[in-house]
Design a protein around this nucleic acid. Structure first.
Length: 573
RNA sequence: GGCGUUAUAGCUCAGUUGGUUAGAGCGAACGACUCAUAAUCGUUAGGUCGGUGGUUCAAGUCCACCUAACGCCA
C-alpha cells in the first residue's frame, strides 16, 4: 500500500467556476484520488478556496458585503457545488484559515532568516477616493501609444503595448473612476528566487517523467532573459495575511499583507492542518503527509492544475519550500492541463461565457458532466465543448453502451430466470475468451489510470463496456435459451457479473451510476478486480438482485437545442 | 516582437526510441440480431499525416524554412 497526497489547484473565491476550471484541475484530481483509494492506497486529497487579493475585495464590494463575510458565503457555495460533482476532497479548506496565516508568516520568517527576502522601495499609485493603493490593472486611462481611452495600467488591450500606470494620460481609478490619484513611495518584500535558480533548475531536471507542457513552461521562466526574476510577495491591502516575520512584527511592514500568490500555495499545507483539526486529529497526523522528517518520506505527492498555474507550482512555491531550509515534501508529479473552450470561444468567468458548475448540475446529474469532461480532457492541446459533441458522446457512451448493457442483462434475466442469479454450469470457449480479453483490458486500464492518462483511460473503460455487449451479441442467450436453458444460464450469470465488474471499474469516473448498479445488484464494498476470472464469479447462483431504473436517460434534440440557445449569451444572474 | 504548444479520415482524437498495407470512437452506407433506453453486434467506404525542401536504405515520426490556430511574456 502506498500513500498518495493529491492536491488540486485552488479555485479563486470570486464566483462560481465554469466547466473549464473544473476539468483543468479538480475533476482529474478526483478521478486519480478515487482510483488510488479503490486500489487500496492511503490517500489525502486536498483542495481549498483562494480567498485573498483585490478581486475578492471588489467582488465583495459589488455584493455589498464585508469581504470576510462574502468569502465565507462563497466558500460554502463552492463547497456545495463540489459535493454536487462528487469531488471527494478529504478537506476543502480556505486560504484565509488561521492555519494558513500562521504557516505563511512562518515561511516568510524562515526565508528572511535565510537571506532570501529583500526590501524594495517602489512607486505605486494611490487613490484618495478609494482610500487604497491600486494594482496596475485597476488603473485606466488613455494609451499614449494609440489613443485608446480604456487602456489598463499594465497593458493597452487595443494595441497590446506594455505600459506603466504612470504612462497613462488622464489616469483614473477603475474602481471609482476618481482621477484623484497620487504616486506614492511604498516598501515591499521580494522573494529572492533568483538565488535559488540553480536548485530549481536541478530539481526540474530530475523530473524526467513530467509532461512537456509542464517542463517547457518552467524552463522558459528559468532561462528566459535574465533568468528567474525576484517577485514581490507583499501588497498594500487590508484583506490578506498580515506581514509578520514568523510570530514577530516586521518593522516597516505594518498595514501590509502578503501577496496572494505567496500564501495561496502554502494553503496546500495549511489545508492538511485544517483537515486534521476538522477530524479531531493531532499535528503529527497531518505532518506525516508533509514533513519528510515526520513520516512523509514515502508519500507520493501529485498536483493537478491548468497550464496557467504551472510557473507558481514549478518555481515560486518550490522556491518557498527549498528556501525555508526545512524538510517539506516537494511535489513528485505535476499533471497540467490545457484549456477547454466553449463553442468557438473561451470560457470566461468575468464575461459570464460558457457553462458554470451550478448551471450544469441544474441540467443534468454529475456523471454526465464527469464523463464528457474527463473523456475529452484537454491533455495534449486545448479542447472544445460543443453541445452536439456532448449530446452524442453522452448518449452513445453512457446510455447506449453502458446503461443499456446493464438494462438488457438484468431485464433478460428477470424475464427468463427471475430476479436472482441463475444456477449454471461450466464455461465454454466464449467465456474463456472473454476473460482473457478483459484481463488484458483491465490491466491496461489500470496502467493508464496510474499514469493519469485521462482520455485514454476513458477510452479503455468504454471498450471494456463494449466488450460486454459484444459477448452478449455473440453468445445470444435469448436464442440459446430456447434449446439449452442451462447454457443460457451460464451466459446470463456472466452478463450479471459483467455489470458488477463495470460498476467497480467505472466508479472513479461515474460514482453515482456505479453506486446505483452496485445497490441494484445488492453488492457492497466490492474490491478491485485483481483477478478477472475470480471476480466474474463474485455473484453466486441464487444471489438476488433488482432491475435498476434507467441509468442514463438520453439527451433529446430538443433539450440540446434549448440549452444551446440558453447558453449562447452571457450568464444573466 | 520573443518563446511555447498544436496542425493525422466529415467530426473528436491515438500514433512508443524513424521500419512491413497510418489506427480508434462518432457520423455515413450495408448486413445480422430482436434480450435491451429503436439499444446492440458485424462489414465497408473515407486520409498525397498543414506546405516546401533536406538527412536516411527507410519519416506522420528527425532537421530547416514557411503557413495557420491557440497560449505565455511575471
Amino acid at each position: 500500500m502506498a500513500r498518495h497526497l493529491i492536491t488540486s489547484a485552488i479555485p479563486y473565491i470570486n464566483g462560481i467556476k465554469h466547466l473549464g476550471n473544473l476539468i483543468g484541475s479538480q475533476l482529474p484530481a478526483d478521478l486519480f484520488a478515487r482510483y488510488m483509494r479503490a486500489r487500496g492506497h492511503e490517500v489525502l486529497f486536498l483542495c481549498a478556496t483562494d480567498e485573498h487579493g483585490t478581486p475578492a475585495e471588489l467582488a465583495a464590494a459589488k455584493a455589498g458585503k464585508p469581504v470576510a463575510e462574502y468569502c465565507a458565503e462563497m466558500h460554502a457555495i463552492q463547497s456545495d457545488i463540489a459535493k454536487g460533482f462528487r469531488l471527494s476532497f478529504d478537506h476543502f479548506g480556505r486560504s484565509s484559515s488561521p492555519q494558513n496565516h500562521a504557516l505563511t508568516q512562518h515561511f516568510a520568517g524562515r526565508l528572511a532568516e535565510a537571506g532570501l527576502i529583500r526590501e524594495v522601495s517602489e512607486k505605486q499609485v494611490y487613490s484618495h477616493a478609494d482610500g487604497r493603493f491600486l494594482p496596475d490593472r485597476y488603473i485606466e486611462g488613455t494609451c499614449p501609444n494609440c489613443g485608446y481611452d480604456k487602456a489598463r495600467g499594465d497593458q493597452c488591450e487595443n494595441c497590446t503595448k506594455q505600459l506603466d500606470p504612470t504612462d497613462l494620460i488622464d489616469a483614473r481609478s477603475a474602481i471609482s473612476g476618481s482621477t484623484d490619484l497620487e504616486v506614492r513611495e511604498t516598501k515591499h518584500l521580494y522573494l529572492r528566487q533568483s538565488k535559488l535558480k540553480d536548485d530549481l533548475d536541478a530539481w526540474i531536471d530530475s523530473k524526467v517523467e513530467w509532461p512537456v507542457l509542464t517542463t517547457s513552461i518552467a524552463k522558459k521562466w528559468l532561462h528566459d532573459g535574465d533568468g528567474l526574476r525576484d517577485r514581490g510577495i507583499t501588497r498594500d491591502l487590508d484583506w490578506g495575511i498580515p506581514v509578520r516575520k514568523g510570530t514577530e512584527d516586521w518593522p516597516g511592514m505594518e498595514g501590509k499583507v502578503f501577496y496572494v500568490w505567496f500564501d495561496a500555495p502554502i494553503e496546500y499545507i495549511a489545508c492538511a492542518g485544517e483537515w486534521a483539526e476538522a477530524n479531531g486529529l493531532q499535528a503529527a497526523d497531518w505532518e506525516r503527509w508533509w514533513r519528510t522528517d515526520k513520516g512523509a518520506e514515502d508519500v507520493r505527492y501529485t498536483q493537478f492544475m491548468g497550464k496557467d498555474n504551472v510557473p507558481f507550482h514549478t518555481l515560486s512555491f518550490p522556491a518557498t519550500l527549498i528556501g525555508s531550509g526545512e524538510p517539506w515534501k516537494m511535489v513528485d508529479h505535476l499533471k497540467s492541463f490545457n484549456y477547454l473552450n466553449y463553442d468557438g470561444g473561451q470560457f470566461s468567468t468575468s464575461q459570464g461565457r460558457g457553462i458554470f458548475m451550478d448551471q450544469a448540475l441544474d441540467l443534468l446529474p454529475a456523471d454526465y458532466w464527469r464523463w464528457w469532461l474527463l473523456s475529452h480532457a484537454p491533455e495534449s492541446s486545448d479542447a472544445e465543448f460543443t453541445w452536439e459533441n456532448f449530446q452524442s458522446s453522452v448518449n452513445k457512451d453512457l446510455a447506449d453502451v453502458l446503461g443499456n448493457f446493464v438494462s438488457r442483462i438484468t431485464k433478460f434475466c428477470r424475464s427468463k430466470f427471475g430476479e436472482a442469479v441463475p444456477e449454471s454450469g461450466a464455461y465454454s470457449d466464449a467465456e474463456i475468451a472473454l476473460i482473457g480479453d478483459l484481463t488484458g483490458r483491465v490491466r491496461r486500464y489500470a496502467a493508464l489510470m496510474e499514469a493519469m492518462e485521462v482520455r485514454k483511460s476513458a477510452q479503455e473503460l468504454r471498450a471494456i463496456w463494449a466488450s460486454g455487449n459484444e459477448y452478449l451479441q455473440t453468445v445470444a442467450p435469448w436464442t440459446t435459451f430456447k434449446t439449452d436453458p442451462e447454457k443460457a444460464a451460464v451466459q446470463t450469470r456472466m452478463g450479471l457479473n459483467l455489470a458488477h465488474l463495470y460498476a467497480v471499474l467505472s466508479a472513479p469516473f461515474l460514482p453515482d451510476a456505479s453506486e446505483t448498479i452496485l445497490s441494484s445488484l445488492k453488492m457492497h464494498d466490492s474490491a478491485w478486480p485483481d483477478n478477472i476470472a475470480d471476480f466474474l464469479n463474485t455473484l453466486p447462483p441464487g444471489h438476488a438482485f433488482e432491475v435498476p431504473e434507467v441509468l442514463f436517460a438520453k439527451i433529446t434534440d430538443d433539450q440540446c437545442a434549448d440549452w444551446q440557445s440558453k447558453f449562447s449569451g452571457q450568464r444573466s444572474d
